[in-house]
Nucleic acid binder design. Structure first.
Lengths: 188, 188
DNA sequence: CTATATATAGACCAATTGGTATATTTTTTT
DNA sequence: AAAAAAATATACCAATTGGTCTATATATAG
């Protein structure tokens, strides 16, 4: 029972990376199995529901990873404005450093599958809710009124996702940095 | 020379709609030809470079359409805050009304193709630049200093794109509406 | 050692992909 | 009306898609 989790995990990790980078439809099962080293027989043993199941679990893995990154980033300062700005700047730096190695966490899968797979759509929704609530949590801890904090969490998450998308398309991190710059105005 | 432009135009319009709704890779040329009524022979006659060329021209059509919508929306009020809020609320309403008929204008194609086709990436970049400059223009006309207006244009565009993405995934327009609500804070 | 899950290996499948070739029709020009 | 250009119509292609199948290892028991 040692190689078991190993192979399954490798499949999810590879799929997770490829789905983020290339999107759902552009990523073939052949590519996933080849790059992960696992054969197709194993894929359908570990993921009987095929590509959809693999994508759902990939989204979940990405969600956990990114959520942790957000929480860690936000803990770098007690001041929420500074903390959020630091986090966004970190993302921008990481984007510059490894733009061609990593895509936008959830967006591609969300856009491609929300209309064709309800379970996948729900997974992406959960991801965004988790991201939002990390920001909201930070604001509540800093004394923001709950409803206001929830609204701001949604808006901050939207801003970051949008800036990520545009930075990705433009090939430069400027939008992310400008969003960071406007955080103080937003949080008054 | 009457049927000529007609067939070409039908192909682009159909492709434009399908690419926005389903994304690049999920939209097959067979589906485009079938839904547009044009045969495959015509497709490669009008678009010798195939799917990529068709997608580029589709993005350009969408860009023109959306830009016009933004400009018209922003003209509904002289006050930039009110104008931008009105535009976003219009988008939110339209989203609620026809969410399953229309996807997010450029995002899906941008995410799916930016890393695999430089010309397509450039088309999507042009689209976003055009959207941004519409907001920037409005702010400059309202007396904002140029550099500040440019930065805000980028941020506003990012916010709207991100909110669109999340609204799409969530299946509700709340993120868009909350972004609209925060516009005054952002523009001071 | 045997029996039994667990897991791997990869050949195979129908369907679809983007793209090409060629023949035919329609339209325009002379 | 004849010639030329523009456009349409399909049949066809190799390659790849997601997915299934059966045989074979590789463990973990008893």
């Amino acid at each position: 029972m040692s190689g078991k989790e190993n192979s399954r995990e490798r499949l999810i990790k590879t799929a997770s990376r490829l789905f983020q980078l290339q999107g759902y439809h552009a990523t073939g099962l052949n590519q996933i199995t080849k790059e992960s080293g696992a054969p197709k027989g194993s894929l359908y043993y570990h993921f009987p529901d095929g590509k959809e199941q693999l994508a759902i679990e990939s989204v979940q893995l990405t969600t956990a990873f990114v959520s942790k990154q957000i929480e860690e980033g936000l803990n770098k300062s007690t001041d929420p404005i500074e903390a959020i700005q630091l986090f966004i700047k970190d993302m921008a730096e990481r984007f510059e450093r490894e733009s061609c190695t990593v895509g936008i966490p959830i967006a591609a899968v969300a856009l491609e599958t929300s209309l064709i797979s309800e379970p996948l759509r729900a997974s992406c929704q959960s991801a965004y809710q988790k991201f939002q609530s990390a920001f909201t949590e930070k604001l509540i801890q800093s004394g923001y009124e709950e409803k206001h904090a929830m609204e701001l969490g949604i808006v901050i998450n939207s801003m970051i996702e949008g800036a990520f998308l545009i930075s990705f398309t433009m090939g430069k991190s400027e939008p992310l940095l400008l969003v960071a710059k406007q955080i103080p105005s937003l949080l008054k």
